[in-house]
Design a protein around this nucleic acid. Structure first.
Lengths: 220, 220
DNA sequence: CAAAAATATGAAAAGTTTATGAAATTATAT
DNA sequence: ATATAATTTCATAAACTTTTCATATTTTTG
């Protein structure tokens, strides 16, 4: 997930950036409409957070231009409520609207909400007799529900969504615990053990790739 | 679309049924108020056609009872015009009124009209023995009304309308308190506790998803 | 085949999360 | 203003998960 922050005030951009970092959302920034357009042309953003009142090219004009070649979602930041009516009059395809001063938490939540609509609603993945539902966070083994803890679920989900990919322990840690987590490599083994046990007869679908890590490969 | 015909006269019921069949409208029938109440408890009718003069429980009393737990539209069938005034005096929530003898065609037209209004606002959701009415903001557990406070109602409504979805506490807060609300995560737990207690024997339909949040899952 | 390296596993320890009752705060009604 | 009810906070105990670690087993290498 990647967003573009467009605002002429450094202070505002910095606040937003702080919160995006916490959420591990990637971002770029622009301080006026022209910069924004250039960036959108060369990057693939899921969402653009656009201030309206800016020197050089204002947000309103920038959105109009951007919408011609990008289908990124747009959240407008605006100081005054009146602007809403003005904007809604034009059919700019604005996806959400936040007034300044805003709660960063709210902005983040709206970014997520707006981007989620973009994602596929289908959250079910299955390979052979193993089926996971990421919405309910449940695992069915031959249509029987088996309880997985949070980490165990994240692990089987990672494998199921990337079959035949050999993951290093490092990669698994980055994916599930996050980049900054320092975990003992033996810890991964322990979790693999637990997941294998829960997979029952599909235990050996999680293959050891000696010297590397693990991979998921389904076999009858 | 499904309607319930309540009239003690078989002949009348049969006439109405003939016309409903032609229109492909599903129906059930009852010959007194008690039967009607039982059927409404276990079925979701869009509309109830209710005769007033009936042995055992009269239509007037039946409507009063039914309105407590159903938001089906009610069309009253009555032999005498005077009754109309009498009924309208009481605020029974009658949606339309047809005098006997009536034209079946007219009745059908009124059923359709009344149900069309209803389509916009289906506000009843039920799973197993738990039923909520978002219009009256009431909760029925095994057809017994249980008092839920505002927050508690919002919570059970969120769950009932999204069964099996694992909600994070964050998602719950965003949904019920709004994006900008800063709540202690423990607060959610406290509300969950209260809702669980009110659900009585259905207490464990609200499942803890450790490390994530909660989800609603009905189980016999 | 023996030694070295890597992984598997069971059990214990450490850590985290949730449930719960009670208290404090806030909102609502009388 | 007071009483009542609802919401939120908080501390603690209980339940559960994750991590560590020692040992066993397997695989690779010379």
């Amino acid at each position: 997930m990647k967003v573009l922050i467009v605002d002429d005030e450094l202070l505002i951009r910095n606040v937003i950036k702080e919160y995006l970092k916490i959420e591990n959302i990637f971002y770029d920034e622009a301080e006026n409409g022209y910069q924004a357009i250039d960036l959108v042309k060369t990057n693939n953003y899921d969402c653009i957070i656009m201030d309206i009142m800016m020197p050089k090219l204002d947000g309103y004009s920038a959105i109009k231009e951007i919408k011609k070649f990008s289908n990124a979602k747009v959240i407008v930041l605006s100081a005054r409520t009146e602007e809403y009516d003005k904007l809604s009059g034009f059919d700019l395809g604005i996806d959400d609207y936040v007034t300044k001063p805003f709660s960063p938490k709210e902005l983040i939540a709206r970014i997520k909400a707006v981007c989620k609509r973009n994602e596929k609603a289908i959250k079910i993945t299955s390979i052979g007799g193993i089926k996971i539902n990421e919405l309910s966070r449940t695992v069915l083994i031959d249509n029987e529900e088996v309880e997985f803890t949070q980490t165990q679920f994240d692990l089987i989900a990672l494998f199921l969504k990337n079959p035949k990919v050999a993951f290093t322990r490092e990669m698994i840690i980055d994916n599930i615990w996050g980049y900054s987590y320092e975990a003992d490599n033996r810890t991964i083994d322990a979790h693999i053990k637990l997941v294998r046990n829960k997979l029952g007869k599909y235990k050996n679908c999680i293959k050891t790739v000696r010297g590397v890590g693990y991979k998921f490969e389904y076999n009858e």
